[in-house]
Amino acid sequence: MSVSFIRNIAASPKKVLTTAAVAAAATGMVLAAAPAQAATGQASSAQAIAHKMIPDAAQFSAFSKIVEHESGWNPSATNSSSGAYGLVQALPGSKMSAAGSDWKTNPATQIKWGLDYMNSRYGSPAAAWNFWQAHNWY
């Protein structure tokens, strides 16, 4: 570090604060980006699991559209007003325990429960999506 650089810093505390604020903001942006990347990875992992469980392209597409609208593919998504939980927003979330005790954390368990629900209530994910489009819920 040069002496003139140190003098400039000492002479201009405003510059120091501005530089520190920019550095802090930059650091904050980097830290904020990490969870978004993790969520994106989690979503793509859940989508891959669902694709294996739902090989039919049309049924997968319908299931995917519902999940995208309901939770954005976030297996820990919680609706603060209703308490609905998970990828498929089961209400209450504990219903998904029928598919496995790891329902709170395992996307595969949530997908299995959601797929079973869509098939038993509507006949298929495509029929559930048709209902969702007409009513904004399923």
Rank of each mutant, 00 (worst) to 15 (best):
A33F: 15
A33R: 15
A34D: 08
A36Q: 04
A36Y: 10
Q37R: 14
A38L: 15
A38Y: 12
A39I: 11
A39H: 09
G41T: 13
G41F: 10
G41N: 15
Q42L: 08
Q42V: 12
A43G: 14
A43T: 13
S44M: 13
A46C: 13
A46T: 13
A46P: 14
A46S: 15
A46Q: 09
Q47Y: 10
A48G: 09
A48K: 02
A48W: 00
I49E: 11
I49W: 11
H51G: 12
K52I: 04
M53T: 09
I54H: 08
P55S: 12
P55W: 12
D56A: 06
D56R: 00
A57Y: 05
A57H: 02
A57F: 05
A58L: 01
Q59L: 09
S61P: 03
S61I: 05
A62T: 08
A62E: 06
F63G: 06
S64N: 04
S64M: 02
K65Q: 09
I66S: 04
I66K: 00
I66L: 01
V67M: 00
V67Y: 03
H69G: 09
S71T: 10
S71W: 05
S71L: 03
G72F: 06
G72R: 09
G72E: 05
G72V: 06
G72H: 10
W73P: 07
W73V: 10
N74T: 12
N74I: 09
P75E: 02
S76K: 05
S76M: 00
A77P: 00
A77V: 04
A77H: 03
T78L: 11
N79K: 12
N79G: 04
S80Y: 06
S80W: 03
S81I: 03
S82W: 01
G83N: 01
G83L: 02
G83M: 02
A84N: 05
Y85N: 01
Y85A: 01
A90Y: 02
A90N: 00
A90S: 06
S94C: 15
K95M: 12
M96V: 14
A99Y: 12
A99L: 15
S101Q: 14
S101Y: 01
S101L: 14
W103T: 06
W103I: 08
K104P: 04
P107F: 08
A108V: 09
T109C: 10
Q110C: 14
Q110W: 14
Q110H: 08
L115A: 08
L115F: 03
L115Y: 07
L115E: 02
L115R: 04
D116E: 11
Y117P: 07
Y117A: 08
M118V: 09
S120G: 09
Y122A: 08
Y122N: 08
G123E: 03
G123V: 07
